[in-house]
């Protein structure tokens, strides 16, 4: 990590930004309190980190309550990330709970052509999201099939992160590594792999 950057060095980094090589991928996750959105954001960041990238994970903390819509964030870059502000124009949006779509505008600020992942068991109205590259996965079913539960509720973060790998944001082997680091259980890895297979672009 470079702490004091000379004008020359920084200029070359700036060129890199222009060339797109120093891009920061910004991801926003929508979930409901208690579904593991923060953990999913962290898992993604760890996966990116295991790929040798720099990443940060955070969440918007408010007066939290179980079941309320929440957002979490992951930033991934080849360089140290110096942005601490909230993500306003994400490259990718992940909707862990489809009922959130009715409550908040999940695509707000999403860049045209940006990636959108929705956990759903039904078909999605593609017209509604025509500006974006939409993926779907039935993460809830996968979670229930693998009996991934915390306090009786299905854990969605593992299959969701598996599906994100399908979108090309992080590699599947990095996702595997992240899961094993955070929840060392082969069952979780298997669930993520199934989600990877099941996730499909509209």
């Amino acid at each position: 990590m470079v702490w004091s950057v000379s004008a020359k060095e920084a200029a070359s980094e700036s060129d890199a930004v222009r060339a797109g090589t120093r891009r920061v991928i910004e991801i926003r996750l929508h979930s409901r309190g208690g579904q593991g959105g923060v953990t999913a954001a962290k898992m993604l960041a760890v996966a990116a980190f295991l790929e040798g990238k720099y990443s940060t994970a955070s969440s918007f903390y408010g007066a939290e309550r179980r079941g309320a819509p929440t957002v979490s964030f992951t930033r991934i870059s080849d360089h140290e990330i110096r942005k601490y502000s909230q993500i306003r124009r994400p490259d990718c949006v992940i909707v862990m709970d489809p009922t959130v779509i009715d409550a908040v505008d999940v695509t707000e600020g999403l860049k045209p052509g940006g990636k959108l992942l929705i956990n759903t068991e039904n078909n999605i109205d593609a017209d509604k999201f025509e500006d974006y590259e939409v993926y779907t996965v039935n993460a809830t079913k996968i979670s229930l099939d693998f009996d991934l539960k915390v306090a009786g509720a299905p854990v969605l973060n593992v299959p969701i992160v598996g599906a994100v790998a399908k979108m090309g944001i992080v590699r599947l082997d990095a996702v595997r590594g992240a899961i094993l680091k955070m929840f060392p259980n082969e069952k979780n890895v298997a669930a993520a792999e199934v989600a990877y297979k099941m996730a499909a672009m509209l």
Partner: peptide, 8 residues
Amino acid sequence: VLSHVMQP
């Protein structure tokens, strides 16, 4: 912004 953000 620092206390709750995760970084390497």
